[in-house]
Simulated assay, not measured.
Amino acid sequence: MINQHLSCDDFLDSNKIINILPRNPQIPFPEHSHDFYELVLVKSGCAIHVKEGEATPISRGSVFFIDNPQLHHCFTHMDQLCLVNVILNPERFNHHPLLNILSESCRSPIGQLLVPENVIQRSEQILGQINQEKQAPDHYGNVMIENLLSQLAILFWRVHHTPDYAMVESNHSIMMLLNELNEQFSKRIDWEKLCDKYQISLRTLNRKMQEIVGLTPNHYLNRIRLCQSSKLLKNSQISITDIAYQCGFNDSNYFSNKFHQLFNNTPMQYRKKFQRL
């Protein structure tokens, strides 16, 4: 597998601490690593984000932070994926705790932070203000940029630590439901009961999930399960049959077939490919 290493100098001017790169859409790009930090906000579409063999399904509202220069990652199964890349040079920051807040806010068992619609909109406003400050003719642009980035980091921190924070728009129920699926993926999902819990109809659930994640509810659930299984294949010696059951599959053969369809490797091939010896 070819890995490309990207340098901070390729994306940032010598006197700048940040660069914001819209990807509309994100083009296919090989597995890579980089010596800068990267904050990613997904605006639309869906894909799978693979980090060192650990896969995570991403869609509108997904936020993640890459702060490990040794980490190799890429996107696969992109479907109209549009996102914003925020490139950060950690060596030029005066306020290093800010980067720690970003890292903590985006760290979770599912590999990402899921934010509601109004937080996406507020994030885009802050990033727009940062872009304006990049053009400031005085010496205080970087100070203002760190101030604005602090607002963004604290916004994400509050969403991470207070799940109901800022969820006041019409997609509140769907976002809470998605969070539950990400936490309860290994269990049998009764869609009717889940819809009753969040006071939405099955028809609305199907329509909203197509809008937000680009997948049907069952397809999205299967993708979560398969991505979680990739983590277990890489990081454990659990048998493939047990991994299938732990990730919510009742039939290990069905699991293996679906895994091969998604990752173009059997579970055993995937384990040999990514597991550290």
Rank of each mutant, 00 (worst) to 15 (best):
V63N: 01
I2D: 11
P137K: 02
K43P: 00
H32E: 01
Q275D: 02
E117L: 15
Q275R: 15
V159A: 04
V63W: 02
P57L: 07
D35A: 00
C74W: 10
E133S: 11
V168D: 10
S229D: 07
P28R: 05
R223Y: 10
Q135A: 11
D164M: 03
N222I: 05
C74H: 15
K193I: 00
L114K: 02
W157H: 07
K208Q: 15
Q70L: 13
F11M: 05
A166Q: 10
I17E: 00
L41F: 02
V86C: 05
G214S: 07
L21K: 01
V84I: 15
F263A: 12
A166I: 04
P22R: 00
P137D: 05
F29L: 10
P163R: 09
E146A: 04
A55L: 10
I20R: 02
S229K: 04
D242G: 00
H77D: 14
K16A: 09
A55G: 12
N85C: 11
C82K: 14
H96L: 05
N235I: 01
E54G: 05
S33C: 11
Q135Y: 11
N171H: 13
M175A: 03
F75R: 00
N147Y: 14
E192M: 11
S105C: 09
T56W: 01
H95Y: 14
I212E: 08
G45K: 10
N24D: 11
Q135C: 09
F65R: 00
S7P: 00
G214P: 06
S44I: 06
I189E: 07
I20H: 03
D164R: 07
E91Y: 08
N253H: 14
N3W: 03
D67G: 10
Y37H: 13
L194Q: 02
E91G: 03
S62F: 05
S173H: 15
C195M: 12
L98S: 01
L181Q: 05
N253V: 14
L98M: 06
P30I: 07
E146S: 03
P116S: 14
T241Y: 13
P163E: 09
Q112A: 08
K16I: 00
D164P: 00
V40L: 02
D196G: 05
V42T: 13
P69S: 11
Q80A: 10
N19L: 03
L81S: 05
Q228L: 06
L226F: 13
I48C: 07
I101C: 02
S44T: 08
N24K: 14
L262S: 12
F274I: 04
L127G: 05
F65I: 01
S150R: 03
I18T: 09
Q269H: 10
E31S: 15
Y270V: 05
P28L: 08
N89I: 00
N94M: 07
D35N: 10
H219V: 15
T266R: 09
R92S: 04
V119D: 05
G141C: 06
V86Y: 00
R107H: 14
I110M: 12
S33F: 06
H32I: 01
P109W: 09
S14I: 11
T204P: 06
Q26V: 08
K272D: 08
E192T: 12
G61W: 03
F64G: 03
